[in-house]
Structures are given as structure tokens and as C-alpha cells.
């Protein structure tokens, strides 16, 4: 675990579960999906991150301070979520520490929830969700669930670091990416992603409230989206549109 980043446990943390990640990225898909899961499954805070690499901010809830990066959970799910955009120069130690911590809890699989921007998003009625995995066996799992594989291309951001680190440490990991707006919070994309997540995990998640509250979420999420855009620009997120030069 990185010396610069600490995870402080507040409760007994379940072992042998699944660990999910919802970090600010295009369309805030992962954060919106994570927020909905916390409310639907009544997940409670089990741990939080303490690090000088994070911006000098705390999140106040009911007058009490909380880290912007927290881990919620129940008996079989751990969910790491950030309420602030993570800058590109701190993503590595932050993601590595979270994954190392999850590994210490014997997590069976890591799943990152995020988005893939599409230019004609306004005109798309049914959003596609794509998946990539850290090894061929895990990729087979998502293929068997009927989820489309993101075959070629670039991935930029926290999920890219998660995939790379999990591949090198042989931890089964999946990234789910829902088609979304690049610059605007996209609750519909979060709902589409959660529908696919239910297929992977074999659980039920009701997304009707998420869709009903779409306008409220878009209004609330403006400021986080604005700051996330600045970080996405610095990490050259538009590289995901690039045609890869991969010679097999």
C-alpha cells in the first residue's frame, strides 16, 4: 500500500465480496451509479481515504467532516466512490492503494463503472454498455452475460489504472462503460450501466427512481461535472476517440 495514501477503516469490513468503483469521469456515470447503489442497498460507510494527494477539502454531512473518497459496503459489496475529481498526477497511488486494500479483504472481483462518450448522444434512444476485462477468463464471463466487449481503443482515467494494475497483479477485474455525454451529467447512462451490472452480479437494482430524479441529479451534479471536465482535459481524455495504432 502506498505510504502517501491511507485507508482508515471505520467498521468491520466484509471479506470475499465484490468491489465496485465510481469515480468522476465523463458524464459522471460512475458517481451517479454509485450514489444510486448506496441509496438503493442502504450501503454504509466502512472506510475512507486519507491522503495529502487529495485536494485540501472535506465533505460536510450533517455538520461532520468526511473524506471525499470513501468506501461504502454491506455484507457482500464494497463500493469506492469519490465526490471530487481526481487529478491525473494522483490517480496511480490512489487507485493502487484502493486495489491493494481490496485485495487485503480478499475481494473476488473489482468492477469499475464509467462512461464512454459518444458525439450523437442526444439522438441515441437505447444506450449500449461495453465491457473490458483484466484477463481472458473474466472477459469470457462478461461475454457469456451478453455484454458487448470494447475490443480495440484507448481507455483513459481511473478505470485504465485499475485494469492495468489488476491485470499485472492477476486480480479479476471488469470495466463497464455506458455510452454517455462527455460534458454533461448523464443519469440515463448510469441507469443503463446499472442494468448491465445486475446481469454481471446476478442482483436486482431498481433504476426507476434514478430516471425519475434525472433533472435533479443533472442540476446537483453541475459543479462536480465542471471540475471533472478540467481534470479530464488535463489527462487528455479525448484520446479515447483516437484510432489505436496496434500492430498485432
Amino acid at each position: 500500500m502506498s505510504k502517501e495514501v491511507k485507508i482508515i477503516e471505520r467498521k468491520d469490513v466484509p471479506h470475499d465480496g465484490i468491489m465496485l468503483f465510481g469515480f468522476p469521469d465523463v458524464g459522471l456515470v460512475g458517481v451517479i451509479a454509485a450514489s444510486h447503489l448506496i441509496s438503493e442497498f442502504k450501503l454504509t460507510e466502512v472506510a475512507s481515504m486519507d491522503s495529502r494527494l487529495l485536494p485540501p477539502l472535506i465533505v460536510l454531512h450533517e455538520g461532520l467532516p468526511h473524506s471525499p473518497v470513501r468506501i461504502f459496503g454491506n455484507h457482500d459489496i464494497l463500493l469506492a466512490v469519490s465526490e471530487t475529481a481526481i487529478s491525473s498526477d494522483t490517480i496511480y497511488p490512489i487507485m493502487h492503494t484502493l486495489i491493494d486494500w481490496g485485495t487485503s479483504k480478499n475481494v473476488k472481483m473489482m468492477i469499475s463503472m464509467s462512461g464512454i462518450p459518444v458525439q450523437d448522444r442526444q439522438d441515441i434512444e437505447k444506450l449500449n454498455v461495453f465491457a473490458a476485462a483484466s484477463n481472458p477468463e473474466t472477459l469470457k464471463v462478461v461475454q457469456n452475460k451478453g455484454i458487448q466487449v470494447l475490443k480495440e481503443g484507448y481507455m483513459v482515467g481511473p478505470q485504465a489504472i485499475m485494469m492495468q494494475y489488476c491485470a499485472s497483479t492477476k486480480i479479476p477485474a471488469i470495466t463497464l462503460l455506458a455510452q454517455c455525454f462527455f460534458n454533461y451529467p448523464d443519469p440515463e447512462a448510469a441507469a443503463a450501466l446499472l442494468k448491465e451490472l445486475t446481469r454481471v452480479l446476478g442482483i436486482k437494482v431498481d433504476v426507476s427512481k434514478l430516471l425519475e430524479k434525472g433533472e435533479e441529479i443533472r442540476l446537483r451534479a453541475r459543479d462536480v461535472m465542471k471540475r471533472t471536465r478540467q481534470e479530464l482535459s488535463k489527462m487528455k481524455k479525448t484520446q479515447e476517440y483516437d484510432i489505436p495504432l496496434y500492430v498485432s
Binding site: N183, Y184, G214, E216, R218, K226
Partner: peptide, 22 residues
């Protein structure tokens, strides 16, 4: 309230978008 907005310049036009919840 200030909504999020974006601008894209193409060779023939400028496309401005803004997310207007509510």
C-alpha cells in the same frame, strides 16, 4: 443558476450546447 455549456467549432458551423435541467 449557470448551466453547463459547451462549444464546438467545425469548418462550416459552430455548435453550442447547454444542459438545461428543469
Amino acid at each position: 443558476m449557470e448551466p453547463l455549456s459547451n462549444i464546438m467549432v467545425t469548418p462550416t458551423e459552430v455548435i453550442v450546447t447547454s444542459d438545461l435541467p428543469y
